[in-house]
Amino acid sequence: MPAAEVLTARTRPRPRTAAGHGTKARVQGLLLAVPAVLLVAFVVVGGSAMVAAQSLGLMPLVGRPELSTAAYTAHGGDLLVGVGLSLAIAGASTVLACLIGFAAALIMMQGRWCGKLVAAMSSLSIPVPHIVGAATAGLLLADSGLLARVFGAAERWPDVVGGQWWLAVIFEYAWKESAFVGLVVAGTLATRSVDYEETAALLGAGRLGRLRHVLLPLSLPALIISGTIAFIYSFGSYEVAWLLGRPYPEPLPVMALRLYNSVTLTARPEAAAVAVVTAVVSLGAALVALACLRKIPLWR
């Protein structure tokens, strides 16, 4: 998302409200948001509540509803390993995406052919569905993929796809999300950095000084916002880890989907329990990001 414009929007004067301040006008204004709010509430609140109920044994496919936490402990160890693995994959790919995306934003900001080239190339990957990204990453990086063929690596090719370190999965997320982070940060820098940079240069700041004291702080809110969206997305997304990963240990979404599709009837609550854990961690990540944003003077 173009979080870039959050900042610019805030610096503009608030528009005057068109319809006075009568109670009727206020109700009418509020009514405009009602359709969107109802839909979102149904899906988000309804969906979460139903998942929680299923995970606690309140909506079994067969048998009597009974409150129990059995679904959470059924795969105790695997569930914790899944949390760790998903955090590691999402964390590693987000860090890479932020580093590469920030570098890309700096280049884009410089304009000229370098910037235009990088901007054009990164927007190429934006409309790529993740499932397509995963498929093409597989064609590139698998043991018999394009790179292994071109380098004639055969047996010496490292276990990138389905390997111990989940490298192909991290690569796909980092690739897609670095373009996202890059474009968002470039958007922020584009509107705000020129004057600051020139002032800093006038005051004698070197290139590194400008980077550290001007560009980085200016980009930080956009970096945090886009990084968080990328983190939560890769933490809770299924298809890439399913296509490019290995069958054990499993990231949370892959584990949840396997249990969800299992023929065993008791597996549904267990799938719901994995989903609840995923949702709680995602929400936690969002709250941490908001707390970080609040600490940044520029954001306030």
Binding site: D143, S144, D159, Q164, R246, P247, Y248
Partner: peptide, 22 residues
């Protein structure tokens, strides 16, 4: 494959490994 440290997830994946000479 890979000394049994991991396994293909599906028969489709096993087929792909065979096609790729793995």
């Amino acid at each position: 494959w890979r000394q049994g440290s991991t396994y293909p997830k599906s028969s489709g994946e096993l087929d792909a490994l065979y096609a790729g000479g793995q």
